[in-house]
């Protein structure tokens, strides 16, 4: 399976947010726990709206949550 060309720090940010669960994050963002897991594992690229919602949940700008991964291109 081809890797997506970007990475994310959602796992770390969840940890720093008091071990927020994938289900809690999914509920705040408006997606299922499975979708958060897929995004975290780099298997699913979220829409811009969901990406912004995730970043806003952690109070971070988008580029601190998602990053372009040159090796993954």
């Amino acid at each position: 399976m081809a890797r997506l060309p970007f990475s994310n720090d959602i796992r770390t940010l969840r940890f720093l947010a008091g071990e927020m669960t994938q289900a809690e994050l999914g509920e705040r963002v408006g997606v299922t726990r499975q979708t958060i897991a897929a995004i975290e594992q780099g298997k699913y690229s979220p829409s811009l709206e969901v990406a912004f919602r995730i970043a806003r949940t952690f109070g971070k700008p988008l580029e601190q949550v998602f990053g372009w991964d040159e090796e993954g291109r």
Binding site: V31, T32, T35, Y44, S47
Partner: peptide, 11 residues
Amino acid sequence: AEANLKEDERD
């Protein structure tokens, strides 16, 4: 809880 979840963008 899962049964009441709406279909999200990945679904």
